[in-house]
Amino acid sequence: MLDRRSALASAKPYVSSVLQIGEARGFSLLQVAGPAKAISPITGKLPTKVGTALQAQGRTLMRTGETQFWIIGSENDAIATKLDGVAILTPLSHSRTRIFIEGAPARDVLSKGLPLDFHPTVFKPGMFAMTGLHHTPVLVHCVNENRFEIYALRTFALSVYDWLTDAALEFAE
């Protein structure tokens, strides 16, 4: 059987007592384009506002556009077979690497390179933003107040990881 190889296999571990940075492996990512009323009977209730995410049936459902969604599930999620013929599907699992940053200083670190307002009253849990880091597109998801997951293009993942750990050096041991 073919094994998925991490794009961050050669990454240098980041060690800190107040901040964790690493790869969150083991997910599937499906981009779905179509009307919400056709998709939601299969996935569960979809977010109504672009830039927000909901949890349903063990999956994270993100609204990335008026009629476009990201469905993030377990590694062997079979949701695509159920949505086949209902909406336009683009499997993206292989194309993204998920990097997490968790801890009290996470917002300060992200603010160093992402052009977003990371104040806790503005970028709240359940929100996400498609934005850019060093001219490469990334999606940043606020999972809870101090945990963020960054979906980076696989080929840029090591560069994004290196940038993150570099920006977080002041909190490293």
């Binding site: 672009v50 830039g51 556009g65 008026e66 052009p115 977003l116 933003a129 498609m130 934005t131 850019g132």
Partner: peptide, 11 residues
């Protein structure tokens, strides 16, 4: 129009 106010570096 879709994402709200953002920094010019994203455009």
């Amino acid at each position: 129009p879709h994402c709200g106010e953002r920094d010019v570096s994203e455009f």
